[in-house]
Every structure is written in structure tokens, then in C-alpha cells.
Design a protein around this nucleic acid. Structure first.
Length: 321
DNA sequence: AATGCGTGGCG
DNA sequence: TCGCCAAGCAT
């Protein structure tokens, strides 16, 4: 599969007029006006039918999905999401459980601290918000496990509000389509936030559609590797493609090492505890890793994080409180 | 601002 | 095989 358009040396591309006439009133952002319609139309036709996008998911379903999707692919989230919502259909249902049950139900999604935080968020929602996922961005942001992205995502997807939803997909789409580079910076910059705000349609419901659509475009078409420009609704206006798709020049993105790290040991320890339904003796845990110093450090870390509860007599279990 | 934090699939 | 990647957050 060769690129349908060969990168030509660009003599000097005529800049698209920043003063295009807003005939339909949607041209509120200088760069973005010509992006909104194609991306949203594409979304209307190609969006995946995901359970947390259905009306019956509700704000709680949206929030649960956002926790699970932090750094974890959709395909692995789907089955756990269904079980989770069936078991805990409302925040108060989860809040009534022991936190260890949330960690157990999290299964092998990874980053199990998210399960603990989601449980903590359910408790806070039950105590402070009468059991309803708050609608206010600041109140969402105050919940454990919810940062800038997730607060904006819940407010936008669940409540249709107007927020810049800046995740890794959207950042990549903007980097390419607008800025003209292959990858966004390693960490989110103020310039990216400013751009995201500038590109946000004024109309609230259009802004919410745009947030979901631009994210989906990054997930399905404008992917990190093997981007599918031939299927992209804004390929004709994409600054990166028009520049001949130059390679990434900045510092290499640091890949997360895993083999032999504490993270791997923590994962093995927690896997044993998830499967057990009675307190586990230290001697059983000792078998998951040969090196005693690292093993002890990993276990201590899990206890410090509240993911494991130590009991008298060298026994361990998932946290009951 | 840079790190640590899981897991599995894919080229 | 192994490095890269997948809807981040907290410190």
C-alpha cells in the first residue's frame, strides 16, 4: 500500500484564508472551521457502536468507561465494563462494596490503582453528590482518579457540555492536521490547550460532537503508526500530509520498560491475591518472584498504595476497607 | 517536570 | 524477538 499522494516538494502553499466567510455561523475558529463539518460527518457514519456511547449508559457508564480506558485499549475494556455495570449499576452500589472487590473485578486491565480510585470516586459521589455523577467540571476534577482529561470527557460525553477534550488521540490529530508534525510533544503543552480551545465550536452540542469525533478520528484513522490518510475526511487540509509527512524530529518518546521492574512484580503479587478468596500467607507470595529485596519492595509498595491489606501472622488480602 | 504505575497484542 | 502502543493520573 503506497500513499495515494506522493509527497511533492512544496514550493509555497497558499495559506487558507483565515477570513473565510462564516456563512453558516460555524466558522468560529480561524483554523478549525473547515475541520468541524468533515470530521463530524465522518463520525456520524463511522463511529463505533460502543456501550458507553449508548443512551442507557448514562453518566455513570461514561465515567466508568473513562477510568477503564485510561491507557487501556477498547477491546480489553469491553468485557470488564459490561460486568462492572451489571454488578454496580449506580455509584452507590460500588460505594457499598469493599475496595478490594473493585480491585478484584478490575481483573487484568492493568494499573489497578484506577480501580481503587474509581471506588473512591463512587464513595465521594455517594457522600457529596447524592449518588449522582456531578455535572460540574470542577466537581468532577475533585474526584479521585479524575484529571483534566477525564473531567472534560465526562462533562462533554455524558452531559453534552462544551469542553476541550484533549487526549492522546486528539493531540495527535491536532499535531498533524494543524501543526504539521507527526507527533505531539511528550507532555501536553499550554500551546496545545490553547489550540484545542480555539478549535472548539461555539455551539455546545456541536462542541460535544466535535470532541467525540476528533477523538474517534485519532483512534481509527489518524493512528500513531500506519495512519490511514486515504480514509481521512480532512486529508486535503492536513498540514502534515501537505508538508510531505515529515518524520518526527524531536526527542524520542521514552518507552516504558516493564520486564524485570517492580511493576511486573506488583502485577504478579496482585494476580495471586485477586484469585484468592481467603488471606494468603507470605510464603505463597514469595513464590512469584525469586529476588527477595525487590519482592519485599513491591509488596510494601502495594500496601502503601492501599491495594493490599496486611494482616497479623504474615497474611495478606485485598483491602476490606 | 520527570517518574512510576499493568497488561497484552501486534508488526 | 522485542519495542511500541493503548481514551492518564498523582506526586
Amino acid at each position: 500500500m503506497t500513499a495515494p499522494t506522493k509527497p511533492q516538494p512544496q514550493p509555497q502553499s497558499p495559506p487558507p484564508s483565515p477570513h473565510s466567510s462564516p456563512a453558516d455561523g460555524s466558522a468560529d475558529a480561524p483554523h478549525g472551521a473547515d475541520l468541524h463539518s468533515p470530521v463530524i460527518d465522518w463520525f456520524d457514519e463511522h463511529a463505533r457502536d460502543l456501550p458507553w456511547r449508548r443512551p442507557e449508559a448514562g453518566p455513570w457508564g461514561v465515567m466508568v468507561s473513562e477510568f477503564m480506558l485510561q491507557q487501556t485499549p477498547v477491546s480489553r475494556v469491553l468485557p470488564v465494563y459490561e460486568q462492572w455495570l451489571a454488578r454496580w449499576p449506580r455509584p452507590a452500589d460500588l460505594a457499598a462494596e469493599a475496595p478490594g472487590e473493585a480491585v478484584r473485578a478490575w481483573g487484568r486491565l492493568g494499573y489497578p490503582r484506577r480501580a481503587l480510585r474509581l471506588h473512591g470516586a463512587a464513595v465521594a459521589i455517594t457522600e457529596r453528590h447524592g449518588g449522582d455523577v456531578p455535572t460540574d467540571h470542577a466537581q468532577l476534577l475533585a474526584l479521585p482518579g479524575i484529571g483534566e482529561y477525564t473531567a472534560a470527557a465526562v462533562a462533554s460525553f455524558a452531559y453534552g457540555q462544551r469542553h476541550a477534550v484533549l487526549d492522546t488521540n486528539v493531540r495527535r490529530v491536532f499535531a498533524r492536521a494543524v501543526t504539521g508534525v507527526r507527533y505531539p510533544p511528550n507532555a501536553t503543552t499550554a500551546a496545545e490547550r490553547k489550540l484545542a480551545r480555539a478549535l472548539l465550536p461555539q455551539d455546545e452540542s456541536t462542541a460535544a460532537r466535535w470532541a467525540a469525533a476528533s477523538m474517534e478520528l485519532g483512534a481509527l484513522v489518524c493512528t500513531a503508526k500506519n495512519e490511514a490518510c486515504q480514509r481521512c475526511p480532512i486529508a486535503a487540509q492536513c498540514a502534515w500530509r501537505l508538508a510531505g509527512k515529515p518524520e518526527h524530529d524531536g526527542p524520542p518518546r521514552r518507552g516504558q520498560t516493564y520486564a524485570g521492574t517492580d511493576r511486573q512484580v506488583r502485577g504478579k503479587l496482585l494476580a495471586v491475591l485477586r484469585e484468592a478468596h481467603a488471606p494468603v500467607p507470605q510464603s505463597v507470595l514469595d513464590r512469584v518472584w525469586h529476588e527477595p529485596v525487590q519482592r519485599a519492595r513491591a509488596l510494601d509498595g502495594l500496601v502503601a498504595d492501599g491495594l493490599v491489606e496486611p494482616l497479623p501472622g504474615g497474611l495478606y488480602r485485598l483491602p476490606l476497607t
